[in-house]
Design a protein around this nucleic acid. Structure first.
Length: 872
RNA sequence: GGGUCGCUAGCUCAGUUGGCUAGAGCGUCUCGUUUACACCGAGAAGGUCGGGGGUUCGAGCCCCUCGCGACCCACCA
């Protein structure tokens, strides 16, 4: 490798990643620690352990921008802790993504002219397995391109044998604890995918619809009761009409029966609070098999449940020959017409109501009565709340903890069975004679025999989240009774959008299985929105591919760019400009390193230790600044303030190191300090920009080994007085530069190239003439020797003049006036503060003292400025 | 109905127990080519911190209230 004038990420990234990986640096403890057994009871030297898991990306998918953010965050944490010397374990994963993958595969089948119904469940499982197998590896390559320093040999796939074993063990325990039940309940059913969903997987959207009023004749009477409904087609499943017990209009009718139109059934009129007197006619038809509220009404009144819509979304036989087999939409039309013909349709009005949709295909969810496996979540949720309230998990952002508790408090039982072949088979078998269910893990068989009895396996698979909720447990190989320094995880980093679906369930499951919370801290990132703050979606066409960004600007630039301006839990726009800024920073650092290398190449190899020399106060200053930045990074990483950490490094490298320190070294070439400070900066930036820092490390002539395996820098020793003197010197330099610029703007003939800087009683300038001259680019810096002349700079603690003619100074008068006014305003504000006796009494003494000092300085400054002005 | 978050420079966002002149990146304007870097250097402009009220010596930050925006949960016959 060789230093060329600009950094080309594409030329370095692949081989650098390969070098890290082949050197086993991603293993906990790196190459050195690789032999240590991860689960050993006594790790050598008792190091600090740091564990973090990757939320498993879909094994057969491509990474999206959210994964890019995920990896930028997680890998920064990982590399930071590795540099700090922790036994750091970043565990990668791949998700079989049950339903997601199934949807993709169903499309593949469709494209081939086949359907799922041509194959058995087991055949389909095998087909999808092969399909995923072919696609796998793609995702992993992308994770590598983003620089994730995860321990690949520990990659966990959600269908791995140990995952299945653990999931079955938990399920068995729950079964024995009576927390699993099979119930015929209403489930969110997608007729297109023909599977049930958990509540959380359903999208509710407000839609325009119609509310129809339908008359139900009262039996043995000429009265009728008019019900309001948005779903006339479910009329065939009605089992009652409910009115509010307080509703005087219908009091007399309660207990009577109505003739259910279009059928020959009679159903009762019941009193139930569910009926809202204000809504519609105040009378509501009850269809327990197709509506959640009605289901509950049915429970309360012991009503039958009549299913009228089939698994395929078509009306069942019991709707009568006229309606059976129709789609719900057709049936609605036909039923309405029939009601109209019978003069029972009494009204129709437009309303807006919320309709449930399949989150994947958008099909309207049909609440359907089905036999499903449920987890009784009461105890799980209660335990989780207890531990959350005891603050055993720290949340970033903190507000999400309350949100989570709020959710857990209202949690309903969890439907864990899915009618799709791709997933972990539910290990339950039903006795073909008695119907009794038994637990058995031989799910590779569809039928088993025990004591001469035949049992048939349930064909359903687990909800993906049921297995994913074991993620921290399975990734760290947690086993009962064994000490595991990596469990609980130090942090769970994931998207705020899956707080309920995943984080909540990991906490419940972790506590249930291990009796411990599964992680100590949770960091939730928000959505990455497009440049205009819009959610990215395929239909909007505003999706950005992180790998495109990597190809265009480099992995480091992407990582720093996406971290910029981002804070916990917030949905934030993605800015390509930030990526450009990251790219520029990489290039800046590259060139700084290139320059330092050239000094090292030319210079004498002195054997001095890396310390500030006495002749360059800038060296003390940069040591102070590096120390300061390091402490900041440490605190920012602890608080997950990545954007600030990136900014700290940006400012250290660009505004401080390159602009103010490296410039001084063009005069004073302290090679040991240059080497050492550059190394420190490389280490400090490495968590965020792993590739460019390693590329530089490899290019430098004096470094050995890999940067990834280095240790975090220590404090520099420096002279604080010298460092402060450099601050003051910077003041002089900045003022000189801006005054020269102002003069040249005031007078077009002013030549800025041969300005002489004069100084009077000013030891800082006197001691650092060379530096001042170099940094200000004046032609010379000389003492006034008691004969002040020219334009005195507006600096409180310095006596510095620009040696220019009175002509030029006169042209500068206006900006001098402005300056006098500005300082006057500041002075007024300060004086006002001091005139408040309460401030003097109550504010901290050092603050008051500080104010006094400032007033004195400003007063002196304004005096001098006024004198200056009079002289013109 | 229950809950959460946001409103700070033209844009995207920082601002951690309340404390000096409110910051960054990008953008804008002016000037420039020096032992690395035009993916550059120097300088500058730009903010009544959503409105109002309160607490305080002191509020971007704490409390109340109003407005605007986003989101989550429940419900919507």
């Amino acid at each position: 490798m060789k230093f060329v004038s600009s950094y080309e990420p594409g030329e370095y990234e692949p081989e650098i990643y390969a070098a890290w990986e082949t050197a086993d640096e991603f293993l906990p403890g790196g190459k050195v620690g690789a032999d240590e057994k991860l689960y050993d009871n006594k790790p050598s030297n008792d190091p600090t352990h740091y564990s973090i898991v990757m939320p498993p990306p879909n094994a057969n998918g491509n990474l999206h921008i959210g994964h890019g953010l995920t990896i930028a965050i997680e890998d920064s944490l990982t590399r930071y802790h590795r540099l700090r010397g922790d036994m750091t374990w970043y565990i990668p994963g791949a998700d079989h993504a049950g339903f997601e993958t199934w949807v993709v595969y169903e499309r593949v089948l469709e494209a081939q002219g086949h359907t799922r119904f041509e194959y058995s469940r087991d055949e389909l499982y095998a087909q999808v397995w092969n399909f995923v197998e072919e696609q796998r590896g793609n995702m992993e390559l992308q994770v590598r391109a983003l620089g994730a320093s995860c321990s690949w040999k520990d990659l966990t796939f959600t269908l791995d044998e140990n995952v299945v074993r653990r999931v079955y063990a938990t399920f068995e325990k729950m079964w024995q604890d009576g927390m699993i039940y099979r119930g015929e309940k209403l489930v969110n059913y997608c007729p297109k995918h023909q599977t049930a969903f958990a509540d959380i997987e359903v999208d509710h959207k407000d839609e325009k619809g119609k509310l129809w009023d339908i008359a139900y004749p009262v039996v043995d009477s000429d009265q009728e009761i008019i019900v309001s409904t948005t779903r006339p087609e479910t009329l065939f499943g009605d089992v009652a009409v409910a009115v509010n017990p307080e509703d005087n209009r219908y009091k007399d009718l309660v207990g009577k029966k109505v003739q259910l139109p279009l059928t020959d059934r009679e159903i009762p009129i019941i009193a139930d609070e569910h009926a809202d007197m204000e809504y519609g006619t105040g009378a509501v038809k009850i269809t327990p098999a197709h509506d959640y509220d009605d289901y509950e009404v049915g429970e309360r009144h012991n009503l039958p449940r009549i299913r009228v819509i089939g698994d395929d979304g078509a009306m069942l036989e019991n709707c009568g020959p006229e309606f059976a087999g129709l789609t719900t939409a057709d049936c609605r039309k036909k039923a309405l017409q029939a009601l109209k013909d019978a003069e029972l349709l009494r009204g129709e009005k437009e309303i807006v109501h919320s309709v449930a949709h399949c989150y994947k295909c958008g099909t309207v969810i049909e609440p359907t009565l089905k036999e499903q496996w449920f987890v009784d979540v009461k105890k799980l949720a209660k335990t989780a709340i207890k531990h959350l309230e005891a603050d055993e998990i720290k949340f970033f952002p903190t507000s999400k903890k309350r949100v989570l508790i709020n959710y857990l408090e209202g949690l309903k039982d969890w439907n864990i069975s899915r009618q799709i072949p791709w997933g972990i088979a539910i290990p339950m078998f039903r006795n073909v004679n008695t119907g009794e269910w038994i637990f058995d893990t031989r799910t590779n068989l569809s039928e088993i025999e025990i004591h001469g009895e035949r049992y048939v396996r349930d064909e359903d698979t687990f909800d993906t989240w049921f297995s994913s909720s074991h993620w921290p447990i399975v990734c760290t190989n947690w086993e009962e009774g064994q000490k595991n320094p990596y469990y609980p995880l130090n942090v769970m980093e994931t998207g705020a959008d899956i707080l309920f679906a995943w984080v909540a369930r990991m906490i419940m499951m972790g506590l249930y299985v291990t009796k411990e919370v599964p992680f100590k801290e949770v960091y939730l990132h928000g959505l990455v929105l497009d440049a205009h703050g819009q959610k990215m979606s395929k239909s909007k066409g505003n999706v950005l591919n992180p790998l495109d960004m990597v190809a265009k600007y480099g992995s480091d630039a992407f990582r720093m760019g996406i971290l910029r301006g981002r804070s916990a839990g917030m949905n934030q726009a993605f800015s390509e400009q930030s990526v450009v800024s990251g790219r520029n920073l990489c290039n800046k650092l590259w060139n700084v390193a290139r320059f330092i290398q050239s000094i090292v190449d030319e210079g004498q190899d002195s054997s001095n230790s890396a310390e500030p020399s006495t002749d360059n106060v800038g060296e003390d200053w940069i040591c102070r600044e590096i120390n300061e930045a390091r402490w900041q990074i440490e605190s920012q990483m602890k608080g997950y303030r990545f954007a600030e950490a990136v900014e700290t490094m940006h400012s250290l490298i660009w505004d401080k190191y390159a602009d103010w320190f490296v410039e001084t070294e063009k005069i004073y070439k302290n090679i040991p300090l240059l080497k050492s400070t550059l190394e420190s900066i490389l280490k400090m930036l490495h968590p965020f920009a792993p590739f460019v820092t390693e590329a530089i490390w490899q290019n430098l002539s004096w470094t050995d080994g890999l940067l990834i395996a280095e240790r975090w820098p220590k404090d520099y020793k420096y002279d604080p007085i010298s460092a402060e003197n450099y601050d003051k010197l910077m003041d002089v330099v900045t003022h000189t530069r801006s005054t020269i610029q102002a003069l040249s703007e005031a007078d077009k003939h002013f030549s800025r190239n041969d300005v002489v800087l004069l100084y009077g009683d000013d030891s800082i300038v006197d001691d650092n003439q060379l530096l001042v001259q170099h940094l200000t680019r004046v032609s010379s810096v000389i003492s006034t020797e008691g004969q002040p002349r020219g334009l005195r700079l507006a600096l409180a603690n310095h006596e510095v003049y620009l040696d220019v003619s009175q002509d030029i100074v006169a042209k500068y008068a206006e900006s001098l006036d402005n300056k006098i006014l500005a300082v006057g305003r500041e002075l007024d504000a300060l004086n006002l503060r001091m005139m408040n006796p309460n401030y003097v009494d109550k504010a901290p003494a050092e603050l008051v003292e500080e104010t006094r000092k400032l007033i004195a300085e400003k007063e002196a400054l304004i005096e001098r400025l006024k004198l200056e002005r009079q002289a013109i």
